[in-house]
Design a protein around this nucleic acid. Structure first.
Length: 608
DNA sequence: CTAGGGTTAG
């Protein structure tokens, strides 16, 4: 049975990553590629060793193709992360080869829709599946559960789940994850309690879903419970979720502990764990540690490079981001759409307009990436920051997308910075038509009117603002020392160090005013006396957190603060001054970006 | 010979 021998040879190849090419050549010589199962296996082996090009070539050159050929190639496209290709290639199955989808092909199509979040096409596939011969197939059903879960429709997933006769772990994990990632904790937990086998998969589905829905604290609690239950972590996937959770809540000390755990379990060098660690350190504002993990990696993919590039850019290290990009390209790693978001952002930060334009062009022409709205927003931000306001507005008008709120906000911020009141008013109105209840837009508008001496308009904007029920999220900041962490809300310092905190801020205030500091009260919402406004600013949460940090941290160390809202202009000035007075580096992660305050300067170059 | 669950970057 030479054919079976060859099939086995190929499978061995796949297992040991040895050269498929030689066997392939051998088969061609013997004319064996005419034998369909052998050609299919060949294509599959190429795909499994991430050689999509070769897999596609074998597929294209097959004189006859069957269902297996199609299932193999559609699966290969999914695995290479080209789900849109899966969907676009599939119609040829009928038009070229007159074949209808079988159960394997249905599963691939559903998976492609799931990964794309393409619910419309997913429902079409679902409908076709229902009228097919395979309408009762449990494997396809569990894929459908996963698809609805990933598309954010866990209830639709539940309906399919209920119809599965033999529910195995795949269907259970899909539905649990579906509820968890929507933040529907009650349903997720109820189902989790009913899983016949509470193994690592089940825990991972629950924990990762909770991280995705912003329930990091619950996720940590469950992770600890899982460890207590003695579930051994034989697969690192759950760790990437936990590292991601540390990144999301930006608790550096916690992140370090999780890092230690990944080392202890022997997964630090696993590619996607190191990638998650690089991102975690960057998000926890320790860009030095992020770079350190990155440098120690033995293998780096596009995600690794992009994580460090984006991290460097966000921390104001634009030149470093750009040189990392050069290094990435010379290492033969192809950038993707996310990489360019980071790169253009970096250019924008230091006003490298031409470099940014060049990168945008190279993305389209050299890498064939179709820019999305976010790229246009970055480009416009780049132009706007450097004062090319008209050109920035041209981008908005000529791009193939409808501008969203961040797009208008980027342009508005540029108008404000360059003092173009006329354009600012026009843009603010666009913004208000998208998000009418946004108080900060009114404040900005009012300030612009005031600065252009349009007093009537200014008071009208203020009036509108007061009439609005301002549901402004309360601002808070927190500081984490590992052993303890403290949360500060504006206007209150209810911890035991209250007097010391206040005393220190008062002391610093005296020194700041000696250096010429004048409070900028333009961001204070309500109409009140100047003194009252200044008092409000004095109690902003980030200042409380910094003062507390100065009192409690080890002298000479970096003070790291996380704030839920954006830092106001006055606090920004104050933090710069404080960093100079006390000769300490202060890093603030706010809702939008990172500020490294050092020697009286900020890494954001006062533009944020 | 082909398929389903848990995965990192904006």
């Amino acid at each position: 049975m030479p054919i079976f021998h060859h099939l086995r040879q190929l499978q061995e190849c796949a297992k040991h990553h040895s050269s498929v090419k030689q066997l392939h050549a051998h088969f061609i010589k013997l004319g064996l590629t005419q034998f369909l199962p052998l050609a299919n296996t060949l294509s599959n082996v190429y795909a499994k060793s991430s050689r999509l090009q070769e897999a596609l070539q074998v597929f294209d050159e097959m004189p006859h193709r069957d269902h297996v050929s199609w299932a193999t190639i559609l699966t290969a496209l999914n695995q290479a992360n080209f789900p849109n290709k899966t969907l676009s290639v599939f119609p040829s199955m009928f038009s070229l080869d007159s074949l209808l989808p079988d159960d394997f092909v249905f599963a691939s199509l559903v998976k492609a829709c799931a990964n794309l979040g393409a619910i419309k096409q997913g429902k079409q596939v679902h409908a076709n599946y229902l009228v097919s011969l395979f309408f009762d197939d449990d494997v396809i059903k569990s894929s459908l559960v996963d698809m609805y879960a990933k598309c954010g429709l866990p209830d639709d997933g539940r309906a399919v789940f209920n119809s599965i006769k033999l529910k195995n772990m795949a269907s259970w994990t899909a539905i649990i994850n579906g509820y968890a990632r929507k933040g529907r904790k009650k349903e997720a937990l109820e189902l989790f309690l009913r899983v016949p086998q509470k193994n690592l998969f089940a825990w991972t589905a629950l924990i990762s879903g909770l991280v995705q829905s912003g329930n990091e604290v619950d996720a940590f609690g469950l992770f600890i419970e899982m460890r207590r239950e003695g579930i051994s972590i034989i697969d690192p996937l759950v760790l990437s979720s936990i590292v991601g959770a540390s990144a999301n809540i930006a608790m550096l000390e916690l992140g370090k502990q999780v890092h230690g755990l990944t080392i202890g379990l022997g997964y630090e060098s696993c590619l996607f764990i190191s990638n998650a660690l690089v991102d975690m350190y960057a998000k926890c504002s320790d860009i030095v540690a992020a770079k350190d993990v990155f440098c120690r990696m033995s293998r780096r993919d596009v995600v690794s490079w992009t994580s460090i590039i984006v991290g460097a850019a966000q921390h104001g290290r634009a030149e470093e981001a750009l040189s990392l990009y050069d290094e990435m390209v010379s290492n033969g790693v192809k950038p993707n759409e996310v990489t360019f978001v980071g790169l253009i952002y970096a250019c924008s930060h230091v006003g490298l307009v031409d470099k940014g334009r060049e990168l945008f062009k190279s993305m389209v022409e050299h890498y064939g990436i179709r820019p999305c709205l976010q790229h246009y927003t970055c480009l416009l931000d780049l132009l706007g920051r450097s004062g090319y306001l008209d050109e920035a507005e041209d981008v908005i008008n000529s791009m193939p997308f409808k501008p969203d709120e961040p797009t208008w906000a980027a342009l508005l911020s540029a108008c404000k910075h360059h003092g173009n009141a006329k354009m600012a008013i026009r843009i603010a109105n666009h913004l208000l038509s998208l998000k009418p209840e946004e108080p900060s837009t009114y404040i900005l508008l009012s300030n612009i009117y005031s600065s252009s001496s349009l007093w009537e308009h200014a008071s009208k904007a203020r009036h509108l603002l007061e009439g609005m029920e301002v549901k402004k999220e309360p601002g808070y900041s927190y500081i984490d020392f590992g052993r303890e962490s403290q949360v500060f809300y504006a206007g209150e310092a209810s911890n035991h160090m209250k007097d010391e905190t206040f005393g220190l801020l008062k002391e610093l205030d005296v020194e700041m005013r000696r250096r010429g500091y004048v409070p900028d009260t333009s961001c204070v919402l309500h109409n009140m006396e100047q003194q009252e406004k200044e008092r409000q600013l004095f109690w902003h949460s980030e200042r409380l957190a910094v003062a507390y940090g100065l009192l409690k941290s080890v002298p000479g160390t970096v003070i790291r603060i996380v704030k839920n809202l954006r830092v106001c202009g006055d606090c920004h000035t104050v933090l710069k001054l404080i960093s100079d007075i006390v000769k300490r580096e202060i890093v603030v992660r706010d809702a939008k970006r990172y500020h490294h305050f050092k020697d009286g300067k900020c890494s954001c170059n006062d533009f944020w």
